[in-house]
Amino acid sequence: MAAILNVRAVVRGYRLTPTVSAELILLLDEHVSSVHSRTRISAKPLSIKTQELRVRAICAALVELREGGFALASPWNLRRKHIEWLVQRWVSVKQSGGTIENKLTYLRALADWMNKDNLVGTLDDYVDRRENGLARSYVAEVDRSWEANGVNAHEKIAEIASTCPRTAVQLRLQAAFGLRIEESFMLQPVRAVNDIDMLLEVTRGTKGGRDRVVPIEEKYAVLEAAARLANPLTGSTVPADRTLKQWRNWYYYVLERHGITKSGLGVTSHGLRHQYLQEVYEKWAGVAAPVKQAGKRPDAERHSQAIRRVVEAAGHSRPTKANAYISTFARQERLAKPTPTIDEVRSALEAAAGNKSHAALALGISRQALYRLLDAA
């Protein structure tokens, strides 16, 4: 049976009117664990963590509306003007594009539960991302792997093991199999191994409920080390005397203590996943990933095959998601070119009769880069 969040306890922690609170609880009781996604492929219900994030985001938005002068008597009174006001508020306080998109996703789920399918749009429906500094790039421009930042993963993890063997073994799992942090916490090393096919079945803590399998190859020693530290009750490597939240806090404390932060050594544990997926690409493409700036390209067929392998290993649904880890050859070539001067930009615009797309093409840069240069002038 799926775990369901105690929505009453969460909702009553917010300053909502009794009527709004009661009607919201009715909606949440019925829908809080249901999936609302265009890309999720698993039939499994949402995790307790995601359920709580969803409830808190919806409650916080309703509180913000009341503080903004909108006296909603019921969640059913939610209108487009309310969503527009919320987005403008979030933009004005400099929330990131990703944060706002997540909030809109939660509100879109609420709207769908009330059969108001077109009530909540995407961020692009409300603001110009470029003008508000909310443009997001899904193509890596810098190499976030530990290797690229001068950190020897084997040596650093061995150092961390002296402080906390469990944290170290979770880092080893991330490095060996490209696991996300949550996946490394919740992996059950004994149960997840498929000895017949020599595959690791990643099914717990996955993003979007997308289960996947990862080749074990010669990495059984990592799984054996993890199995020795497995919690006898849950089978994961999270100790029995800590909740998942408590363990997460401890995990980040240990990493910070050893300099594994952007402000410390310039890397995070997520960089191990980047490193693993870059290695997957190189294995199948026969050349280094584009983000390595090695200057060599594979033929189109090998590149496509390598991209597919990266996406499968990462547990994503779209080929373009690979770009977040390995970048693209086009982006790296563009970054390697010297930045045009403002005089060159103006000359290109004049030659293109003011057409920014044509001017950017002539300069060999993106239109977004052209805008940035003009804004900085």
Score class of each variant (00 low, 15 high):
N249W: 08
A176K: 03
P319S: 10
G98I: 01
R334P: 04
K81F: 06
R130N: 11
F70D: 07
A330S: 12
I196D: 05
G286T: 13
D211P: 04
R248A: 15
V151R: 01
T163V: 13
S33A: 15
I365N: 01
L229M: 14
W76S: 14
R8Q: 14
F70L: 10
W247T: 04
V214K: 01
S145I: 09
A153V: 08
Y276C: 05
T341S: 15
L173K: 05
V169R: 01
Q88N: 15
A351S: 13
V254C: 03
L16Y: 05
T234Q: 03
G364C: 05
A148F: 04
S366I: 06
D343Q: 11
K219W: 00
T339H: 08
V10H: 07
V310H: 02
E30S: 13
P189T: 15
K245R: 10
L53A: 15
L72G: 09
R346C: 05
V91E: 04
A313T: 07
A227Q: 08
I160F: 06
L72R: 03
A352Q: 00
D125T: 10
G133K: 05
L110G: 07
V213C: 08
V142A: 15
R166A: 06
T50G: 12
K207A: 10
N231C: 12
F329Q: 09
A43F: 05
P45M: 10
G69T: 09
T268A: 09
T122N: 05
E256I: 05
Y253Q: 13
K321E: 06
A221H: 12
V142Y: 14
W85M: 08
K337C: 09
M186A: 07
R66Y: 09
A148K: 11
L373M: 10
A300C: 10
Y281F: 13
E282I: 03
N249K: 09
D112W: 04
R54Q: 04
E155V: 13
V7R: 08
Q95Y: 05
Y276R: 08
V120A: 13
T19R: 14
E155H: 13
K219I: 06
M1W: 02
I365R: 00
R212N: 04
T39M: 03
A313Y: 00
H82P: 03
I326K: 00
V287P: 07
R210T: 03
Y106S: 15
D117C: 14
A353G: 07
R180N: 07
C59F: 13
R346I: 06
G121D: 01
R130G: 12
H154S: 14
E30H: 09
P239Q: 05
K219H: 11
I100D: 00
V91F: 11
Y371M: 07
G354I: 04
A306K: 12
P338M: 10
D375E: 14
R166S: 02
R228C: 09
D117S: 15
E201V: 12
A288H: 09
P75K: 09
R166Y: 05
H270A: 14
L335F: 09
D29L: 15
V310N: 03
V35L: 11
A153S: 13
Y106C: 11
G354R: 00
R191Y: 05
A135Y: 07
D343L: 12
N102C: 06
L28D: 00
I307F: 00
A306Y: 07
I216S: 04
S96H: 00
K356M: 02
